[in-house]
Amino acid sequence: MQATSTLKAGSEDTVTAAAPAPAAPGNRSWARAFADLRNGFRQRELWSHLGWQDIKQRYRRSVLGPLWITLSMGITALGLGLLYSQLFDSQIGTFLPYITTGFIVWHFLLGNLTEGADTFISNEGLIKHLPAPLSVYVLRTVWRQTIMFGHNLIVYALMIAVFWGSISRPGYTITQGGIPQPGLDWSALLAIPGFALLALNAGWVVLLLGIISTRFRDIPQVISALINLLFFMTPIVWSTDILKQRFGDTVDWRDLIAELNPLYHFIQIVRAPLIGNEQSWHHWVIVGGITVVGWALALVVLRNYRSRVSYWV
């Protein structure tokens, strides 16, 4: 009887020891993907400090420091504004603010596209030695571009102070014979949620391009090759009024050059309120749709390939 009891007890211990432990979430799990984003936002002091240090290191030992960002933007905007206002026979008082604001927003988009593709590659050392979420490096890039955007707004403020009378007047036009604009008023505050939407999209762009570029190193080169084409196809130094004046109100492939360009809609939700342009709801709808689709793709990529980034870099 005692031997039988001992045998039964031993069998129960064997079964208990053989029972599998609860499985931990795998590397490819939504829980870990969302935890990465959540923990990255919590480490605000880390990514904000790294982003500011990037700006300081870039202009270390220079006399003007980060003000070179503002100066270079101002020179570029002034030169392009003077040139294209003469080419398109436009008044400098309305065309220069149009180009300046468009160029400021474009610079933010451009920075997130180009530097976003190199986000994890340039942070190779930190990724391999610092146990931090991947989203920290994404936020570092977006924050750095936001700081540069803030510096460039100094140029916008100076431009508004000089040409206030031209763009605050209801009915002004960007080009000769163009669509009358309502003029600058309190609706300029809509640029704040517009930029917030830009920054939100910058997050998924940096995250998605950053992960893909660590696996396929040709992606940053492809983006660099397309930048100039995207710049001239986006209404930054030219206005959609020019298309309507030359080809009429008939919708054809020429109008689609602007409307099918997502960068145009991103620029308009910030530029239009800043210079008192007519604001169309369809720009917000398109940007909102891109935001949802973009973050869905980025989260899928983060879920599936987050754990491989440290090996790819």
Rank of each mutant, 00 (worst) to 15 (best):
residue 186 W to P: 02
residue 110 L to M: 12
residue 214 T to A: 05
residue 308 R to K: 09
residue 186 W to L: 14
residue 11 S to C: 11
residue 96 L to T: 01
residue 199 A to R: 14
residue 87 L to G: 03
residue 251 V to P: 00
residue 244 K to Y: 10
residue 284 W to Y: 14
residue 229 L to P: 03
residue 127 I to A: 00
residue 311 Y to E: 00
residue 252 D to R: 07
residue 300 V to R: 14
residue 41 F to P: 01
residue 184 L to Y: 12
residue 251 V to T: 09
residue 223 I to V: 15
residue 185 D to K: 12
residue 204 W to G: 03
residue 125 G to I: 12
residue 65 G to Q: 01
residue 198 L to R: 02
residue 105 V to T: 15
residue 254 R to V: 13
residue 64 L to A: 13
residue 213 S to L: 02
residue 299 L to T: 07
residue 55 I to S: 02
residue 104 I to A: 03
residue 188 A to R: 03
residue 130 L to P: 00
residue 54 D to W: 03
residue 184 L to D: 07
residue 285 V to D: 03
residue 259 E to W: 15
residue 94 T to A: 03
residue 97 P to Y: 04
residue 211 I to P: 01
residue 209 L to S: 10
residue 56 K to V: 12
residue 157 A to S: 08
residue 292 V to N: 01
residue 166 S to Y: 12
residue 124 E to L: 07
residue 24 A to Q: 15
residue 175 T to A: 09
residue 247 F to M: 15
residue 15 V to T: 10
residue 22 P to C: 09
residue 230 L to R: 04
residue 125 G to R: 14
residue 189 L to N: 09
residue 180 P to E: 09
residue 143 W to I: 12
residue 182 P to E: 08
residue 6 T to V: 02
residue 124 E to W: 00
residue 100 T to V: 13
residue 133 P to D: 11
residue 310 S to N: 03
residue 256 L to A: 10
residue 242 I to W: 01
residue 300 V to W: 06
residue 78 L to I: 14
residue 69 I to H: 05
residue 294 G to M: 10
residue 150 G to Q: 11
residue 213 S to Q: 04
residue 40 G to N: 03
residue 197 L to H: 01
residue 154 I to W: 10
residue 250 T to H: 11
residue 221 Q to L: 11
residue 32 R to W: 14
residue 92 I to H: 02
residue 132 A to S: 05
residue 144 R to C: 04
residue 219 I to D: 06
residue 43 Q to V: 00
residue 257 I to A: 06
residue 256 L to C: 07
residue 135 S to V: 09
residue 228 N to S: 10
residue 241 D to C: 07
residue 19 A to V: 07
residue 116 G to A: 08
residue 168 S to D: 08
residue 126 L to Y: 11
residue 76 T to P: 01
residue 127 I to R: 08
residue 283 H to M: 05
residue 293 V to F: 05
residue 229 L to G: 07
residue 100 T to N: 10
residue 126 L to C: 04
residue 177 G to L: 02
residue 302 L to V: 06
residue 122 S to I: 11
residue 5 S to W: 13
residue 140 R to Q: 15
residue 178 G to E: 06
residue 193 P to R: 09
residue 103 F to V: 07
residue 20 P to T: 12
residue 133 P to C: 13
residue 290 I to V: 14
residue 279 Q to W: 08
residue 117 A to W: 00
residue 258 A to L: 09
residue 45 E to G: 07
residue 300 V to Q: 11
residue 288 G to M: 01
residue 175 T to E: 03
residue 183 G to D: 11
residue 25 P to V: 15
residue 268 Q to M: 13
residue 274 L to Y: 04
residue 21 A to P: 02
residue 74 G to E: 11
residue 175 T to K: 02
residue 254 R to G: 00
residue 190 L to P: 04
residue 253 W to C: 01
residue 202 A to R: 04
residue 232 F to A: 09
residue 223 I to H: 05
residue 276 G to R: 02
residue 281 W to M: 13
residue 287 V to P: 00
residue 237 V to H: 04
residue 97 P to A: 10
residue 271 R to T: 10
residue 211 I to Y: 01
residue 103 F to M: 13
residue 54 D to V: 12
residue 232 F to L: 09
residue 255 D to M: 08
residue 97 P to S: 05
residue 94 T to W: 00
residue 240 T to N: 05
residue 149 F to V: 11
residue 78 L to M: 15
residue 301 V to R: 03
residue 34 F to T: 14
residue 36 D to T: 05
residue 287 V to R: 04
residue 222 V to E: 01
residue 259 E to H: 10
residue 126 L to R: 15
residue 271 R to W: 06
residue 171 G to M: 15
residue 141 T to A: 14
